[in-house]
Amino acid sequence: MGLMTNIFQTDILKGLGVTIKYFFSKPVTFRYPEVRYEMGERFRGAHILKRHEDGAERCVGCGLCAEICPAQAIRIETSNGEDRERIVDRYEIDLGLCIYCGFCQEVCPVDAVFLGKDYELADTDPGRTHVGKDEMLAKGEDPRYNHL
C-alpha cells in the first residue's frame, strides 16, 4: 500500500464506490407469490394429460407408461366399453414416488402424457400426493402448466 493510499484511505472510497453502484442497481429478488417464475422449455414438473382437438382424451390406456415407470408411480385401470372400446377408468400418479425422469412421456405412443410446468407440489397432507386423471386433464388445458 502506497503512502498516499494510506493517508487518504482511498481504498475505503473505492469500496464505497462499489457499494453505491449496487445500491442503484436493480434488486435481483423475485417477488415469488405475486410474480411466478417462468420455467424453461425442457422443465420437467408435474404431469399433464392432453386431449385431441375434438376434446376426446388422447390416452388409450395401453399401460406402457405404468410398465416403464422406474418408480412404479403410475397406476392405470381400464374397462371395455359397449363397442369393445377400451375406457381408462383410473389414471393415477403418485407424485411422491415419481422421480420426474420423463420416461412416461417418451414411451407414450399417442402423445397423451407429458411432464408439465407445475412445480408447486407441496401439501400439508402426505396422503394427497396422488393426482388423478381429471386433475391432469385440467392441467393440460391450463396454459400455465402446459408448455407444448
Binding site: Y22, F23, T29
Partner: peptide
C-alpha cells in the same frame, strides 16, 4: 432498505 439495496435485495415491501 439501504442494506437491502446494497445487497441486491428488495427490503421491506
Amino acid at each position: 432498505k439501504g442494506a437491502a439495496r446494497i445487497q441486491n435485495r428488495s427490503g421491506p415491501l
